[in-house]
Simulated scan of single mutants.
Amino acid sequence: MDAGLAAVCGALAGAAATIGASFAAGWWQRENARIAVRAEHRKERRAPRYEAYRAFVSAAAGMAEAARDGDTDPAAMENFRALSNELKTQWLEVSLLGPKHVLTSARAVHSKALDIEECLRRASVLGVNEDGETEESRQRITDQYYSNARDLNDAANAVYSALTIFAESAQKAMDDDGSRRGGI
């Protein structure tokens, strides 16, 4: 090979190596920037999720406690309605913030809370007395009351059980650093 051809081949090899190195460096810079943006995105999502999860747990636990109290007087029912509305608002918030496995467990909590609402609705009509009430009708109302109280307690316990599962899902979501596939 003559010297001129060797010089041209060397120049081409050097140019190809330089181009390859610049492509690799550019790719590396883009990848690092993407990782930084993703980390910042995760950090920005963490704070709203934490607040929504905390408020959701607080509202559901408040409903369960109100159910365990078993009061059906007007003030207790008004308090329960406020807690129920708060839970529905927080459920919507959790639903929008995700991720999917948290939404699934939040849906279970919400469903169990609806069972509490149904029990309290039934309890609110149990105390209605009719004219000409008999001993038999009083006994029927008393039996229904105690049956409903058990249902109410069972529904409150179901909410607490579902909240435990929700809390575990929420902790997984909060601890997710994005290093595994299928994160956020």
Rank of each mutant, 00 (worst) to 15 (best):
H41S: 14
A17L: 13
V37A: 15
N157R: 12
N85Q: 14
L83A: 03
G20S: 13
R30Y: 04
N129P: 07
T72Y: 02
N148A: 02
V109Q: 14
P99K: 04
R81P: 01
I184K: 14
C9T: 02
A13M: 12
R38E: 15
R121E: 07
L87F: 08
D143K: 11
E135D: 14
Y160R: 09
K100F: 05
F23E: 02
T164H: 15
R121A: 08
C119D: 12
S147M: 05
G182Q: 06
G178I: 02
N153I: 01
A167P: 00
G14E: 08
T18M: 11
E130Q: 10
V57K: 14
R46V: 00
D73F: 02
S58Q: 10
A15D: 12
Y146A: 04
R181Y: 03
Q144Y: 10
V109K: 13
Q29E: 06
E31Y: 10
M1H: 12
S137L: 13
T164G: 15
G98L: 04
Q90V: 00
N85K: 13
D73K: 07
P48N: 06
S179M: 03
Y145R: 15
L87I: 06
V159G: 04
H101F: 13
E133W: 03
H110Q: 11
A123V: 02
A76F: 03
R122G: 01
M1V: 06
V8K: 11
A108T: 15
R49D: 04
A11Y: 06
R38C: 00
A15K: 03
G127F: 01
T134K: 06
T134V: 00
Y146I: 04
A149F: 05
S169W: 01
R45L: 15
L87Y: 08
E135I: 01
E135M: 03
S124E: 12
C119M: 11
V8A: 14
L97S: 13
D177I: 10
S147Y: 10
T142L: 10
I141R: 15
S84N: 15
E86H: 13
D143M: 06
S169H: 07
H110I: 00
A76Y: 06
R122M: 09
Y160M: 05
G26S: 08
A39D: 13
V159I: 04
